[in-house]
Design a protein around this nucleic acid. Structure first.
Lengths: 205, 205, 205, 205
DNA sequence: CATGAATGAGCGTTCATTCAT
DNA sequence: TATGAATGAACGCTCATTCAT
């Protein structure tokens, strides 16, 4: 059972994802959440702070799983990387609305308080990627490393773009029942292939 | 010399790019364009129609260059592809504001009239890519083709993500004077490498 | 030690004095009094009733001292009058906040319940003044009496205006330490002089 | 014929006078002035600025008449003073609403922008009074001068208090038709008497 | 003679748009 | 293919108050 506060948060997130922050009115959110118009001020202080709270709520613990994976000593570095990417894909799919907001905020640059979050978030991912590359190189598993910025752009760009456009692609390709799951499986395989190539990893599957 | 109408269009585009459609007021646009407050209604009918007009204005002839390239018979298919991508990168950089709007609108799904444009735009690119792949395969230049959706996601995702985040990357990498041009050159080389690999193209540079 | 109820009362009085009734929120009062937000409804019923209660609280026994003075048979009537005025000045200074509220309410005429209080209060003072004048005339101490309304206006008008503006005057006259006490002493002497003149009282000091 | 702007101004002044600034809503003002709810923002920018504009509108040229009187060389100083006071009384009666607002603002001290006006206004009056006193003394017409602050308090305090309370006094004194005009005449005579006494002026009427 | 979450009306203001010229 | 005054709906938010505990 959701608390009233979380209830507002979830509905706000969904509407912000669909329409954007400015185009979503507090009245709309409250109507969707079936709460009184003054509850946003009551629980969050303001519309802006509600927006920030969504970021706090969704970003906490976002990257911790990745570091747990890094410590799994029985795995090869490439598999750690692929596992982290799988996890990232799952996260984007689960927190679909939030990742739409996140992408939009990366395009905007007029909300200082969320920019701070996003910048930190992005730098954490860049550090993580760097660490993986270093490990792979040190262990002799990776023969080369591409420019970090481009590797990151390809991984996140491919994942987000392909997930965003899934319905367009489905339509273009006349996909039917079960399209999405098959699509995700293929996406993972596709990324695996690209990464192995980019990192100069020996092929063994 | 810009016509009054174009003058409004350009300023509107810039503001929409910076702040989003809903967060930009018509007053703001008119102030920026230094025109009377009722000029938007006068020239475009409404704020919504002004927005659509930006799409019409910027999207016309967007893909025609690509088809001219396709007809350059002296070029190898892979080089045609790379030329088209280079041209696309230039276009994104030149029409920076518009591509920010475009990306945001791809995330939104609440503006039917622009969705129509975007969907058409995207399908045109998918068709173009398909055509290139077919040609390359037919001529024996490409040994394999990845799933169209993923290829498209990687190309546009990598380009847009890396261009959007250029300042973040510059900061993260402590880049100085001339960073951007070097960055673009490297991006093109990086994409060339990935594409050649994905298409099973023989290495010759 | 103040009761919780009085605690609210005192803080409300101070805030109403500083900002006016309408501009002071119940939240503000409760915060200042460090009590729960529903305590005003609990103790007083409503914000309006709290305001009325301040009037009841401060006006009770306001004029009783004056009637005690009237019975001091060893005093000359003029001295009774001056004693009452001194006492009034002290009262205005002690209940500074309340007298600010009172003055403002005399200007307003949109609060029926406080208007009732004020009208009664003012009439009591007019009656008191009338009684003093009658006594003085009867005893042959006063040779003349000015129009009651004007006498009252001069006494209260001079006192309240000069006390309200004390900081402005201090600034205008470059007053230093001890300015206020000296100012009050002079004010009393000034009023004494005027009253003796207006009442045709023989000078003897 | 009033301009729309002045129309709003006059109705706002009246409502502010009756109920105070905070207790008067912009909707109320617009309803009274029979204009659209957004006209306040349109003409004045905000409710606060409308309030300030009332001050600018009413205070301009407030004291100029007094200085014209000062230059009437055929008049005795005491008559100049009395003429200025008569003019002041007329002004208070004509701009009744504004003087109610003014008095309330003198009690409040939480509106910096009007405080500035009022402080200046008051200091101008104090200077004027000072000038009159100096002239009277220099010419030998005045034998003494009371403390400026008290003289000012008595003059303005008596006038404003007696004018504010006119209905209360009328009620208390069972006044009928023509009460007010008679009351004003008596007030002027009363002030004349007090002033002559306070200034040590020879009696000649 | 207490609490604090919750309410809904109303606040000042901004919005895209319309209208008379 | 112009103007700017004017409109009324909607905005985010604050208000005094209520209600279940």
């Amino acid at each position: 059972m959701l608390s009233k506060e979380e209830n507002i948060l979830i509905h706000a997130e969904q509407l912000f994802a669909e329409k954007g922050f400015a185009a979503t009115s507090t009245r709309e959110i409250c109507k969707a959440a079936n709460v009184n118009i003054s509850m946003i001020a009551y629980y969050f202080g303001s519309k802006d702070k509600l927006f920030e709270r969504i970021f706090e709520y969704r970003m906490q613990g976002g990257i911790t799983y990745a570091y747990q994976v890094l410590e799994m000593d029985h795995l090869k570095t490439i598999d750690k990387f692929l596992l982290i990417i799988d996890k990232y894909i799952e996260r984007v799919r689960t927190l679909k609305s939030f990742y739409l907001i996140l992408q939009r905020e990366q395009i905007n640059n007029n909300n200082p308080s969320t920019q701070k979050f996003i910048r930190e978030f992005k730098k954490n991912y860049l550090k993580l990627f760097q660490e993986i590359l270093n490990t792979g190189i040190r262990k002799g598993e990776f023969k080369q490393t591409p420019e970090l910025a481009f590797l990151h752009s390809t991984v996140t760009g491919t994942i987000l773009t392909s997930l965003n456009a899934i319905t367009t692609y489905k339509e273009f390709l006349n996909g039917g029942e079960g399209f999405e799951e098959e699509y995700i499986t293929q996406l993972k395989a596709y990324l695996k292939k690209i990464l192995k190539y980019l990192l100069g990893h020996e092929k063994n599957d």
